[in-house]
Simulated assay, not measured.
Amino acid sequence: MSGQPIGLGRSSNICDDNEERRALRDSVAKLVGGYGRSYFKDVVARGAKPDELWAEMGATGFLGVHLPEEYGGGGGGLADLAVVIEEMAAQGCPMFMIVISPAICGSILAAHGSEVLKRRYLSRIAEGTAKMAFAITEPDAGSNTHKITTTARRDGEGWRISGQKYWTSGVDEAEALLVVARDAEPAPDGRHTLSLLTVETSAPGLTLQPLDSALQLPEKQFTCFFDDVPVAADGLIGEEGQGLKQVFAGLNPERVAAACVANGIGRYALARAASYAKDRTVWKAPIGTHQGVAHPLAEAYIAVEQARLMAKRAAELFDARADAAEAANIAKFAAGDACTQALDRAIQVHGGNGLSNEYGLADLWFIARMFKTAPVSREMILNHIAQHSLGLPKSY
């Protein structure tokens, strides 16, 4: 391990309105900052996994801070996990697996999983000894979950799944998948409902094909082929045919968690840019004394802080069991734009050095840019806000 926690003055405290959250943030910053950006970059360059960091995050309770205490978690909420996720990225370690396994899968299991599934997975997710991946996206369905064609058909007491998912992250390091599948038999209205099932990654008939991605992350992307993959009777999450409702227990946390990764990257980029602008001297003055350098960074800082506050609000609404959809979508939208702007301006401040991998910024570009597209695109967020917030006619 090497490195020191990265900070930007009071920036890290603007969203923490109690001592517990400030202490949590400081503890995560100390742990992750001890590994540092160089550790994370080396792991990615070697095609390895940050196993040491993940194990420590689990052992200290950070991975399961939001999960119920009776299942090995910390008993907190999404707002607590949001602090953990953002601070990891702010220390130069934007880890997607914490979004996928604890945030999405953990939240869904905690809300809708049977006692068997909760006992099987939640404590190990919290302690970092088990990971789960989430399979929802399909090549031909796009953002329209109703068009999913991966099908679960009854087979005795269990099911068989056939179909295809893609852009499934981290499945190579996961013990199980949460799969959103269409029910084979139509409902009385003729429509095919959706169910949510757990699939062991060791199950026969499951084949993984790596996707060649520009993302410089330890989590790899895959197309998953399901060829009559068996699912045991206890593999069903919640109620059969209610998968679409159940999956939203994970989609709002997904948007908040993604926003927090983006906000953390924005904070990291601005911290690096500010440090460079203070140290880099041209014509006897630090370049940060020039408004042409200082103002773009200040503007990006404002955007990141606004996005952070929106993510905090969305997490709090979710924890209060209120409707968090609008806030979660706005948070993700704002964070994607703010992150990209902050990183772009940080790279620009570094001049040619910004394109050097040595400075730890250039390899974050496609990760930051991804937040304009995933886990939900800017266009679909705008559709949601136009229809549900403004009351405009549905456009699609």
Rank of each mutant, 00 (worst) to 15 (best):
P204I: 13
T223L: 12
G76L: 04
R154P: 03
L390M: 14
L208Y: 03
A294E: 02
L361T: 03
D140R: 10
E358K: 12
E19K: 10
A181M: 03
L317Y: 04
F366T: 15
P188C: 07
E157H: 11
Q387I: 05
E326C: 08
S162H: 06
R280S: 05
G243K: 06
H295R: 11
A126K: 00
A314I: 07
M97C: 03
W167Q: 13
V293P: 01
A126S: 14
P68W: 02
F371P: 07
G36N: 05
F366N: 13
D337E: 13
P204A: 05
D51M: 04
C339S: 15
I287H: 04
G73F: 00
C15K: 03
P186N: 02
M310P: 01
A203R: 05
M310G: 06
I100P: 00
I287R: 02
G142T: 09
R369E: 14
A315S: 15
Q242I: 08
A126M: 08
N383I: 11
S389L: 13
A324N: 06
K49C: 07
E157S: 15
E157P: 01
L24I: 06
W283F: 13
K332M: 12
A285F: 09
E20F: 13
A298R: 11
P188S: 10
K30T: 13
L194F: 08
Y166E: 13
A59I: 01
F248Q: 15
A346S: 15
A314S: 11
Q246S: 14
R369S: 14
L196T: 09
N357G: 15
R182W: 02
I265S: 01
D363Y: 08
Y301K: 06
A342V: 14
V99G: 02
P186Y: 12
D319G: 12
A48R: 10
V171F: 04
L78Y: 06
L31T: 14
T289I: 11
A325H: 09
D319E: 02
Q348I: 14
Y166F: 10
S12D: 03
Q4R: 12
Y39L: 03
Q291Y: 04
L297I: 08
I14R: 10
L109C: 03
I14K: 02
K49A: 04
K312F: 04
M310D: 09
A368M: 08
A259T: 09
L392I: 06
R308K: 15
N383P: 04
G3H: 00
C15Y: 07
P253R: 03
G64A: 05
K30E: 12
S356Q: 08
T289V: 13
G3V: 01
D155F: 09
S213V: 13
A90L: 03
L392M: 12
L177T: 05
K30D: 11
Q216L: 15
R272S: 08
G336T: 08
L206A: 06
V229A: 09
W159D: 02
V99W: 01
K220M: 12
A294P: 00
P186D: 02
A273E: 03
K372Q: 13
M97T: 07
A269G: 05
K220G: 12
A141H: 08
E185R: 07
V256F: 13
I237V: 14
A346Y: 05
A368V: 07
L194S: 06
A338D: 11
C15W: 07
C93G: 00
L178T: 05
G266W: 00
N383E: 14
G352T: 04
A79L: 03
G142L: 10
